[in-house]
Design a protein around this nucleic acid. Sequence first.
DNA 1: ACGCCCACCTGGAGGC
DNA 2: TGCCTCCAGGTGGGCG
Length: 277
Amino acid sequence: MPELPEVETIVRGLTADVQDKIIADVLIKRKDLRQKMPDNLAEILINKQITRIKRRAKYLLFDLNESHSLIVHLGMSGKMILKKKDPSWQKNLNKHDHIAILLNDNNYLVFNDPRRFGLVDIVETDKINDCKLLSVLGIEPLTKEFDTLYLYNLTRGFKTPIKQFLMDGHKVVGIGNIYASESLFMAKIDPRRTATSLDQEESDKLVTSIKEVLLAAIKAGGSSLKDYRNAADEAGYFQHNFAVYSRANQNCKNCSNKISEIRQAGRATYFCPNCQK
DNA sequence: ACGCCCACCTGGAGGC
DNA sequence: TGCCTCCAGGTGGGCG
């Protein structure tokens, strides 16, 4: 569920209230997520200060005393929510709350993930870029390095459809099923086109569109289709601005033709066959 | 290496 | 009410 804008919204939401706090206690209820939590996770976390909260791709990163970094991925259904102080915090956890982190102001962070496609891991901060999860990641789309020529060169030789290419985190990170459809609509590019078929002009439009769509979604606090919530447990509202996603058979906002829904690699894709070539 | 398919897991929605 | 099928913001492993 959460793509780059949703994770970024959580990072921004947590920063003011969580940065510089010290971890006072940790309760782990369930370790068997997509990847099993390390056995020594709680003992590493306790008494560490959360010095910085960052995002890389769709990962939340919590730097701890410049020694370790806590890595959290929300998968499809994960939430990371800051809850107000509660003397019975350990007893009042909900179903699918897998780990709770008590801070020294007695507020506590809860990671909830019904489908358990997410994960929680801990690595030494100076080795974070070499760790298995992060070392394979592609470029951040909101950096200046991600420009027309970068995308043009990156796509050379790839016959996979451009929509699937955009969703491949080994190439470009953060773009999931919603923002891939939205970006391609804005760039007027057919999602079924092969990646390598894009010329420089189209690469330019696509780079611009990706950045615009992601920034607009961050500004709107992310998209909440069903269960996405920010750090304060509130819904985002970018879903009201979708041009094509989940709008099958509705009118295109440009030309008023019907929006099409197709399946690509098992995922729904939405596009306007009239506008997108 | 690339491109494709599948699995992982739970819950909500809709059909009958 | 209940049962069944399909669907969902992600990702990596395994195959040819």
